[in-house]
Write a protein that binds this DNA or RNA. Structure first.
Length: 213
DNA sequence: AGTGACTTCTACCTGTACAA
DNA sequence: TTGTACAGGTAGAAGTCACT
């Protein structure tokens, strides 16, 4: 907030031009926070394509849709060039989402922002494709409860094995990974007869596929 | 060193919009 | 019409910082 109030950041790309001394001088922002912020900004300069799409804040495009788009097109240029008809071909994308995406990239202001980010040093990475086999391909997993590892970590591991990780339990869910204090999702999984696995079982499964934790 | 203010992270829940 | 995912709100725990 301060950064905006003090007119230090007027556009997203301005973030990449901030300096350490300047940040450390702000209220409630010591040197440690300044270093952390800068380190995070540096890391954020090379987001995977799906994260970049998600971060653009296009209507109806959340993490799942962003990943689907990234997977289908493979590069930002191809998404920029895609017409609505091509966008509709992406799984889980219908005419409404397609028109939002298409309109977003046709907006000159949005094109400018992308260009500024590129000039500031932003470089997206292609989606990580794993050469290894994907034993969980076609399965949909849902995480619930407190896990011994960050959710993002568990999600990455599952996706590396080919599984899709969804946010809510449905009849299509293959497996629910339930940590401690699992709530409504676990009950729903039980009522739907979805297979439930605890963290211990999850770790054993990962190890059986040779995944290093 | 202790304390309070504040942020960040993680997780859950619910309403809503969308795709099939 | 139904199933699904997204988005936004909320809350608790943990971490960080400024101040005394």
């Amino acid at each position: 907030v301060q950064l905006v109030e003090k007119n230090l950041v007027r556009a997203v790309a301005d973030l990449y031009r901030l300096e350490r001394e300047l940040l450390a001088g702000l209220e409630r922002m010591g040197e440690k926070s300044a270093d952390k912020l800068l380190a995070q900004l540096e890391r954020s300069k090379t987001p995977p394509l799906d994260r970049l799409l998600y971060a653009l804040g296009i209507r109806e495009v959340g993490e799942v849709t962003a990943t689907a788009l990234a997977r289908h097109f493979g590069s930002l240029d191809r998404i920029l060039a895609a017409g609505e008809e091509e966008l509709v071909e992406v799984p889980d994308v219908g005419p409404v989402v397609a028109s939002h995406v298409h309109a977003f990239f046709r907006e000159p202001h949005n094109r400018d922002v992308l260009e500024q980010l590129e000039q500031a040093g932003l470089r997206w990475r292609p989606l990580e494709t794993h050469g290894r086999e994907q034993p969980l391909a076609g399965q949909t997993w849902v995480l619930t409860g407190a896990l011994g590892m960050p959710r993002a970590r568990a999600k990455t591991l599952l996706e590396a094995l080919g599984a899709k990780v969804a946010g809510s339990v449905s009849a299509k869910t293959s497996v629910v990974l339930a940590g401690a204090e699992a709530g409504a999702k676990l009950r729903k999984a039980e009522s739907l007869g979805v297979r439930v696995i605890d963290e211990e079982g999850f770790r054993a499964l990962l190890e059986s596929y040779g995944t290093v934790l």
